[in-house]
Design a protein around this nucleic acid. Structure first.
Lengths: 204, 204
DNA sequence: TAAAGAACCGACTTTCTGGTCTGATAACGC
DNA sequence: GCGTTATCAGACCAGAAAGTCGGTTCTTTA
């Protein structure tokens, strides 16, 4: 294989497997050997491509996590009309994906945020940045919704956005240790009620 | 000091400091030496009172955590009237406490749940039990609220309870890495809106 | 007051983990 | 063909962490 291609393939493999294991067992509870063993690679290979375990994690956050969060939680909302319906669909498909795929990136984000909080300022910053992008996107969408007549101007867009994010992080945390599909159903019902109570054009 | 008293005092000291450090730095990221150093105690003392680090953690969960969660999140709701107002006050004071006291036990519970999930089934079970007690209490309170005419019977009590818990876990996770007091204010506003949309006797 | 045992000390062992370093090997330019 | 370099293998190291164990000190009790 061509050199630069092989290099990129190796890096990619490491990042994908790294994210998978870090998510499953936690960053601090997963050793480099765990990852390298699963890939049948060596320490030499790892430290050729990355400077440290921290550097490795940051590359995962920036390349994999950010893109996944963007495509699953941000892009489907960006620029669209009817924010409530739009956000609702977005959350629904993210939760559905989580049930079959066992890994939805919104939750991975929340999970990592709580793991690194107070333990690694550097990594926390990158995670918070992603979170911020999501938040800004939600707020923008809601503001546009006001202009387009989907909700009244007196509602607090930032408050709603935070509430949506919080409830999503939280329900995913509950889902891992319980009846996931039932929780997902009940959650969607409640978020719909919540949205409905603020919605002007009653498309519900 | 009397022996059995001294013994219990030592155990208590270890548990309190252990909970504090486990919460701050995470269980897997806190060594026994960290705890023992802070208390000026030795390994010998620790393994005299506890069988292992896991056993130690379980004793903390059962004795400290459970009681604190009970007194701060369950007792204030149990048997009372007007569930929405009651739950609202309860969450508010928990969040307020979190801002000054830096440690509210509802969040500690959620935090630990995510840390141990998939990593220690044993400890996870104990944490889930506490969570379940909270949930049952919320559901019971809401059911009673229906009888007392505070909300209509068609609302799904389990769904509402899960939604409350999820939003609370989530907002606390967001608070650690952001503007806590602003988030708290916005959160309480949103949860009030949510409650209001289901409330019959409009005490709001 | 002296034996018994509870409570504790701290050095030691074992295992694991992040990180380093010396080579090996295959692709690449010339 | 030949030196160069990118890519990787794996032995090795230092430090940390959980857990062990023989010994010490203090309290109770007979």
């Amino acid at each position: 294989m061509e050199k630069s291609l092989k290099s990129r393939a190796t890096v990619q493999k490491m990042q994908v497997k790294g994210l998978e294991l870090f998510y499953q067992k936690g960053y601090y509870n997963t050793s480099l050997d765990d990852i390298l063993k699963a890939l049948e690679l060596s320490k030499g290979a790892f430290y050729y491509h990355f400077q440290s375990k921290e550097d490795f994690m940051i590359s995962i956050v920036q390349h994999l996590l950010f893109r996944k969060v963007y495509s699953s939680l941000i892009e489907p909302i960006e620029g669209r009309e009817d924010p409530f319906r739009c956000i609702e669909n977005c959350l629904e498909s993210a939760l559905e994906n989580a049930e079959h795929n066992f890994m939805d990136y919104g939750f991975v984000l929340g999970n990592f945020m709580s793991e690194f909080n107070g333990r690694n300022e550097n990594i926390s910053r990158y995670l918070n940045d992603i979170c911020k992008v999501w938040e800004v996107n939600l707020v923008t969408s809601l503001q546009k919704g006001k202009s387009d007549g989907y909700l009244e101007r007196h509602w607090d867009s930032e408050g709603i956005a935070s509430f949506i994010m919080a409830s999503y992080f939280g329900i995913r945390a509950l889902m891992v240790s319980g009846n996931a599909s039932m929780l997902r159903y009940k959650y969607m019902q409640q978020i719909r009620n919540y949205f409905k109570s603020m919605s002007l054009k009653s498309s519900f």
